[in-house]
Design a protein around this nucleic acid. Structure first.
Lengths: 325, 325
DNA sequence: TTGAAAGCGTTACCAG
DNA sequence: CTGGTAACGCTTTCAA
């Protein structure tokens, strides 16, 4: 027997006031209420165990104070960490986030967006959306993270500069043949900016391109790519991996081949999730400023800046052992 | 100028029918509607771009088809994978999950529960809740995952049997001195069942207890614990880590000390997240049946089994290289 | 300082 | 087979 929920009516009755007064007390406005009355209402709320019904409030107010967050894959630590940062930021500002995963599938992604929209979310955060969904007419603020979309604002790390810095560091260690592991084969998208950054650094140093292995953004993809690079005719002495997951796979490929990191091959990765601090050896990484991106994304949704902008944030180079430091 | 949302009224007007009919069409019930009328309504919906308002529906129906999920830490891969499994399961059954993280803090946890309750979630999933919140009076189904609570049903792996199997495997490899890394120091709770399982296996084989290191359930905790065990007077030849995160830390501690896995020290971990397949060496793990647990937890929430039960599920022993296989 | 009442978008009952 | 309409719980304007 699921006991009927206590409504604001019950509270009003118990306290001997009107429902309006209860509302004033609960919301601390928009009208003042006499201290004594206020006490009575508070008491009634306590006694009855009243909890306001946010759906009714949302219906009336037209806003749910809820954000929808769609990631391509909740199992990817990068997205998990990003989601955590967003949740934290949103919580701090009184919002709740409806988080869901699109499983890398554009049609699932579209369906999830629709699902969130009917639930009247106050804003939408799309992490690395696979396709460009039709977003001009949704009527709520939308922001893309880690990917730029034509019709909405976006927030992402300075991929190109970050990759350049990572590769440059490898060059400073004396490497002349630096391979690249990047997206492009299978699902998982590409990463043109990181590829450009890698090339920038090589050009600046007057080096020729090292071998490129294109693979999915996964540990397995990195493993395959690593094996490919190790088998290349001109085997690189260093590898720049465009994601943590791939770097971890590369590491495994290198270990299996009996080579040593960083002595035989150095590795630097892009992303910088927690996992990289405990790989063997610990990975030198170009870290995405997740907290800052999360803060900015949430701010824009709440404060409703409506000009379409694409914002980028500087990365951090974290030196650990895999580069030879 | 945020264009006014199109409501069911607009659709009714456009199609020249009443709002009730629109409702029947949208919900495919509870009344039949003439095919021709139906077509007109569908057309109107298409033309106007109508999207039903789920908050109004929730208010009317008293159910949101939304679950609240609270994990202690969204950054922990185990919980991220579990959340993913739950999201997938819930999605398949037409539910959406509001996921949020309590950051290991009981008061945050309580606040998040309240936040979800006012949003009228249809059920609550609590992953490894830190405290026993007052849950008898919430009026919606609640299920605990990976921890048993007095007042609600729970779902968890067979910790004891799983740990026993993992340690037994180590014994079969010939190890006689097997250390344990487990929770208990700092935040992060304990793990009595896993400790019991470890001891069971040792007893069964007539072995004495190896050294125990208590630490937080984190990579850092495992690292510290690993160093502690390596410095022990009777250094173990094998270590059973009660979580993946700790095992990864243990691995790092071993590598730093110059020892080899599994030759000098074997390692087996409990959990079995994706990360362990790509550690070096790949970890032999006792895998939690996350998908099954997720399915069962969601089912119970939806189907509303109200007897308080604590359900356990068998683990899988995944053999990889860290045990010596 | 407080009360009454309208209305948010939806569902479902009751008439027609 | 379809239309009208009350009700869900809440906020807020208007009146007292």
């Amino acid at each position: 027997m699921p006991k009927a929920p206590v409504t604001r009516n019950d509270v009003a009755e118990y306290a001997g006031v009107s429902t309006a007064v209860v509302s004033y007390v609960v919301n601390e406005g928009p009208r003042r209420v006499a201290p004594e009355t206020r006490e009575r209402v508070l008491e009634a709320i306590r006694v009855l165990g009243y909890r306001p019904n946010a759906t009714a409030r949302a219906l009336r107010m037209g806003t749910t104070r809820t954000f929808g967050l769609i990631t391509p894959d909740g199992g990817n630590p990068l997205f998990a960490e990003l989601a955590k940062a967003i949740d934290k930021e949103a919580s701090a500002r009184g919002y709740v986030v409806l988080q869901t995963s699109a499983d890398g599938d554009p049609v699932t992604e579209q369906a999830k967006i629709a699902e969130l929209l009917i639930r009247q979310v106050s804003g939408l955060l799309l992490v690395a959306p696979t396709e460009d969904p039709d977003l001009t007419e949704v009527g709520i603020p939308v922001i893309a993270i880690n990917r730029v979309l034509p019709s909405v604002s976006s927030v992402r790390p300075q991929y190109r500069a970050g990759a350049r810095a990572g590769v440059k560091h490898l060059i400073e260690h004396g490497h002349r043949m630096i391979g690249l592991v990047i997206g492009g084969r299978g699902t998982g998208g590409r990463a043109p900016e990181r590829e450009l950054g890698w090339r920038d650094a090589l050009r600046q140093a007057g080096l020729e391109d090292g071998p490129i292995a294109r693979a999915r953004f996964s540990r397995q993809g990195g493993y395959d790519a690593g094996r490919e690079l190790l088998a290349a005719t001109k085997r690189p002495t260093a590898i720049f991996a465009s994601s943590d997951l791939q770097a971890v796979g590369v590491l495994r490929a290198i270990h299996e081949s009996g080579l040593r990191v960083p002595d035989d091959i150095a590795v630097v990765a892009f992303d910088g999730t927690a996992e990289t601090e405990y790989s063997w050896p610990p990975l030198t990484v170009v870290r995405q400023p997740l907290d800052r991106m999360a803060r900015e994304a949430v701010s824009r949704l709440i404060d409703g800046e409506d000009a379409v902008q694409s914002l980028t944030y500087p990365t951090d180079l974290i030196l650990r052992r895999s580069c030879g430091c």
